[in-house]
Design a protein around this nucleic acid. Structure first.
Length: 699
DNA sequence: GAGACTCGTGTTTTT
DNA sequence: CACGAGTCTC
């Protein structure tokens, strides 16, 4: 098999064809080389729009087609589930693996770092002292625990805020520093206290038999570093490893990657230091800059041909990013012609800015042959979307907001799932509290505390305490277990429901009924449904907020039909980031304008891009202005935004903007000035929108 | 002690 | 402006 590759390689230079591998046609020489370089370390420095995704997927495809690897021995790591899913889909189509069947083994394993680690830990976390059904806490859950910890340590919550503590803990976990090392490492009182919080937090997670997001990576690395035989199994199983967006990996992700490929070193990483935009998450650009040092003899391939943007757009991007001092110099070349100038719009107010964008979108779709799906509106912070949305709604332009609150993070969804989570893992006190207090059943803080205290005192979890009658002294809990018959809210009914869920979880899938039936049961029997319906006769009488909650729960019941396995569903819901319904990431087939943050736009492209709110303090964000390196990161973020555009780019800013309670008068972003005038066309606010509405807004 | 109510606050970004 | 913590009332 090796031979075939070599022959192919050679034949390229001699101009022979690739009839055995038709998918290689149309690749440029660098791309081709990247696809064909299969053995040993490979670094692909891929500029924006240089066909990076195509190279990765073709490389995986080629490994299979050329008989070098079984699909299941290829691991592709990405940062979002969406990206992972898309790559898998592409390969599935190329390999003609049908959709519905059990695909395991037939396709390469494309995962995020987190889902990969979670899968590993589900199998082996007992080696680290975790239970079979350990819980996965999201930011929200761990935030709650952290706040509690800060209180219990009698620290001033104004000074040692939960968010700072969270940041501290996250950073340490990302750097593979555990709470003991943290206590040793830091000596000043400030960090010492955070270390104490870290320590207590870790203990509580353990009590809850829970891991947070950081733990997934931390524990996977710990697992592999302390169990050489297990690492051997995994690293010899995954003969070929690829990591996408390598510039955004942090210390622990880099470490995990190196562990996995230690034996064979068949590692291919793809990235672009100009697109490193996650340093606040602990991402280290050095991981990609020093990759060659880590893997001596590594092949480096640069993809510098951009197939996406017009020359003007690309020039704008290049000129901008050239302002950064700390970067590897490189130049993207384009194949496309000039294109029109970048439009810079100066608005008097954010309202007027939204008006302009909406009007321009309508003009583009009516007169210039674009459709809504070709257009994206990108902003620095989510809060900007609102005023744009208002205007789009008023002018009946269909749009879809991506990102923002994720589906599984919505209150009502978390509420319903917390019943299931608690039933699956009775040590999960966070889910216990959430489930018992999300419906008013006469159990408030005091009762909850009483229950926890009883359980703690007897050294058992809450459900065992209930099962052995220890809770009988509590008001409303005199009888023993009773099956759930009617949806009457109450403490007894609550425990009846949880016990019932537990029985079903343990039962064989054939005997327990479908998962969606279980979730419906929770919804009805917990009293959640009647709470939302508020006793009203028809749903039309419900408030808009309640109605949307009901719809979301119905969506949840719907979505859960795809799952047979409860544990799998719980894992998915813990780490799946997909936002509101119907957002599979298929931007192509919905006729809506896309609205999203610049961060979530990474990896996407649109014929028309509007970048909104290009103002000092907002973009670059106020919090970045203290450090040169942070401003550079903002600039890279701007670079990412610009390079999303294929044909037309709009940069808009407003002189006056409502931020929080007050109006701010910001200067235009330095990033606008950093694009040469010759590439720009500046349009001033023409005051043509309705001042009536505007002034009412500004009252 | 539970639940309604008000006030104040706070809004960066993949998992 | 929406959410959470804190206060007040039943």
């Amino acid at each position: 098999m090796r031979k075939i590759i070599k022959d192919t390689d050679k034949s390229d230079r001699e101009g022979r064809d690739y009839s055995a591998y038709p998918y290689l046609k149309g690749l440029n020489p660098e791309q081709l080389e990247a696809v064909l370089h299969t053995e040993g370390p490979l670094l692909i420095l891929a500029g924006a729009g240089s066909g990076k995704t195509r190279v990765i997927t073709l490389r995986a495809l080629h490994l299979v087609k050329a008989g070098l690897a079984r699909p299941s021995s290829i691991l592709g790591v990405t940062f979002t589930n969406k990206a992972a899913g898309e790559m898998k889909e592409r390969i599935a189509r190329a390999l003609e693996v049908p959709d519905k069947d059990d695909r395991s083994g037939l396709l390469p394993d494309f995962s995020t770092f987190h889902s990969f680690c979670l899968r590993v830990l589900r199998k082996h976390a007992d080696l680290l002292g975790y239970g079979r059904s350990f819980a996965v806490f999201d930011e929200d859950d761990s935030g709650k625990v952290i706040s509690r910890v800060i209180k219990s340590l009698n620290l001033d919550e104004k000074i040692f805020t939960a968010s700072k503590a969270k940041y501290f803990i996250e950073n340490n976990k990302n750097s593979f520093v555990d709470h003991e090392q943290s206590l040793e490492k830091y000596n000043n009182p400030w960090e010492k206290n955070f270390s104490l919080i870290y320590e207590e937090y870790s203990k509580r997670l353990k009590q809850n038999d829970a891991m947070d997001f950081g733990d997934l990576l931390f524990n996977a690395v710990r697992l592999f570093e302390t169990n050489a035989d297990l690492l051997e199994i995994y690293s010899s199983h995954y003969q070929y490893v690829m990591v996408d967006e390598f510039q955004d990996t942090n210390f622990i992700q880099d470490r995990l990657t190196k562990l996995l490929v230690g034996g064979h070193k068949n590692i291919c990483v793809v990235g672009d230091d100009d697109q490193s935009i996650y340093s606040f998450r602990g991402a280290l650009v050095d991981n990609i800059l020093k990759f060659e040092e880590s893997f001596p003899g590594c092949r480096v391939i640069k993809l510098e041909r951009n197939y996406r943007s017009t020359r003007t757009i690309l020039n704008a991007a290049s000129n901008l990013v050239r302002e950064n001092k700390f970067r590897k110099d490189k130049t993207l070349k384009t194949e496309k012609a000039g294109g029109g100038p970048v439009t810079v719009y100066r608005a008097e107010s954010d309202y007027s800015e939204a008006y302009y964008i909406t009007r321009e979108i309508r003009r583009l779709t009516r007169l210039e042959g674009y459709s809504n799906k070709d257009i994206a509106v990108l902003y620095r912070v989510n809060s900007i979307s609102r005023i744009i949305e208002d205007r789009l709604v008023k002018e009946s332009v269909k749009y879809q907001v991506y990102g923002g609150l994720k589906f599984y993070q919505r209150k009502e969804i978390k509420d319903i799932i917390s019943f299931l989570r608690f039933a699956a893992n009775p040590k999960d006190a966070v889910s216990f509290e959430r489930s018992i207090s999300c419906v008013p059943i006469g159990a408030g803080e005091a009762t909850v505390k009483k229950i926890r205290d009883i359980a703690d005192k007897n050294g058992s979890d809450i459900l065992s305490a209930y099962g052995s009658g220890l809770l009988n002294g509590i008001k409303g809990l005199k009888e023993t277990v009773s099956p759930v018959t009617k949806p009457a809210p109450g403490l007894l009914n609550y425990f009846g429901l949880i016990m019932e869920l537990r029985r079903k979880i343990d039962a064989r899938p054939t005997e327990r009924g479908s998962l969606s039936a279980l979730i419906s049961m929770i919804y009805v029997n917990s009293g959640y449904e009647s709470m939302l319906n508020g006793g009203r006769k028809t749903r039309a009488l419900n408030s808009e907020a309640d109605e949307s909650r009901i719809e979301n729960i119905e969506e949840l019941i719907n979505a859960s039909q795809e799952f047979d396995d409860i544990a799998e569903f719980l894992d998915q819901s813990a780490i799946d980031e997909s936002s509101a319904k119907g957002q599979g990431g298929d931007f192509g087939d919905i006729s809506k304008v896309s609205l999203m943050t610049l961060h979530s736009a990474k990896g996407l492209e649109f014929p028309v891009v509007f970048m909104v709110g290009l103002e000092e303090q907002l973009f670059p964000h106020a919090r970045s202005l203290f450090e040169e390196s942070s401003v550079e990161e903002e600039r890279r973020l701007c670079y990412v935004g610009i390079t999303r555009a294929r044909e037309r780019l709009y940069l808009t800013y407003s002189r006056k903007r409502k931020m929080g309670k007050e109006f701010r008068y910001n200067h235009p972003s330095r990033f606008i000035n950093e694009i040469p005038d010759s590439l720009k066309e500046v349009i001033e606010d023409d005051y043509s929108y309705s001042w009536d509405e505007g002034s009412r807004y500004y009252r």
